[in-house]
Structures are given as structure tokens and as C-alpha cells.
Amino acid sequence: MKLYGLKTCDTCRKALKHFPNAEFKDVRADGLPEAVLNAAHEAFGAALLNTRSATWRGLDEEERAGDPVELIARHPALMKRPLIEAQGKLYLGWTPEVQAALAG
């Protein structure tokens, strides 16, 4: 299992606490592999962008209208977190639904 997020993100910390053996990748420090980013965008579309983040609020309208994949590649903190890769499947966020899917 791989968990992509930010080491300073409380939600990522909660997920890591639940899965202490997961391989954690800090997207700000390590980046997000292009193949994973493209697969996540294909799976989650616009939901992949965290439009409530301080990073998003700091972008101008022209940047916000850009390609979401390029935006996340340039500004990894724009990705909704955590992005979890488990058994060949991607999960976004740490919702009760994601927790139940990963528990079973």
C-alpha cells in the first residue's frame, strides 16, 4: 500500500496511523509519479483538486482554468489527500467509505 499526501496534513496522518506499514510519499518533497497522477485524474476527475486549499486561493483565474494534471504537477498541495494506492486500486480521501473499502 502506498499513501500519497503531505506530512503536515492531519488527514494523511490519520490514514497513516491506521496503516502504519503503508509506504508514505510526501508529494511536496517527492512529487507524484506521472502515471499515478494520470490514473488518479482518470479515476476521480475534478474531485482530485482541493479547491479549498490555501494554494488554490493563491492562484489567479487563468491558472485555475488550466489543466488539473499540470496544476497538481506544479503545485502538489492542490491534490486532495490522501491518495491511497492499494491492491492495484486508487482511493481518494479518508472518508468512511474509503476506510470501509480498505478494511475489507
Results as ranks from 00 to 15, higher is better:
Leu37Trp: 03
Trp94Phe: 12
Ala47Glu: 15
Met79Lys: 00
Ala40Thr: 08
Ser53Val: 06
Leu78Gly: 04
His18Gly: 03
Ala101Tyr: 10
Thr51Trp: 00
Ala86Gln: 15
Gln99Ile: 14
Trp94Gln: 00
Glu62Leu: 07
Lys14Cys: 01
Thr8Val: 14
Glu62Ser: 12
Gly93Glu: 11
Asp30Phe: 10
Met79Ala: 01
Glu70His: 01
Arg74Glu: 03
Arg52Glu: 13
Gly104Gln: 13
Met79Gln: 00
Cys12Ser: 10
Gln99Thr: 10
Asn50Leu: 11
Leu59Tyr: 06
Trp94Thr: 00
Leu48Lys: 09
Lys7His: 14
Leu59Asn: 07
Trp56Met: 08
Pro96Lys: 13
Glu23Asn: 09
Gly58Ser: 11
Ala35Trp: 03
Leu3Lys: 01
Ile84Gly: 05
Leu49Ala: 14
Thr95Phe: 09
Ala86Trp: 11
Ile72Val: 11
His41Gly: 07
Ala15Thr: 05
Glu97Pro: 12
Ala54Ile: 08
Glu85Pro: 06
Pro96Trp: 08
Leu32Trp: 03
Thr11Ile: 14
Arg81Met: 04
Cys9Ala: 12
Leu49Arg: 13
Ile84Ala: 04
Cys9His: 05
Asp26Ser: 12
Leu37Phe: 02
Thr51Cys: 05
Glu97Asp: 15
Ala40Arg: 09
Ala46Ser: 14
Ala54Trp: 00
Pro82Ile: 02
Leu78Lys: 00
Lys17Phe: 00
Phe19Arg: 09
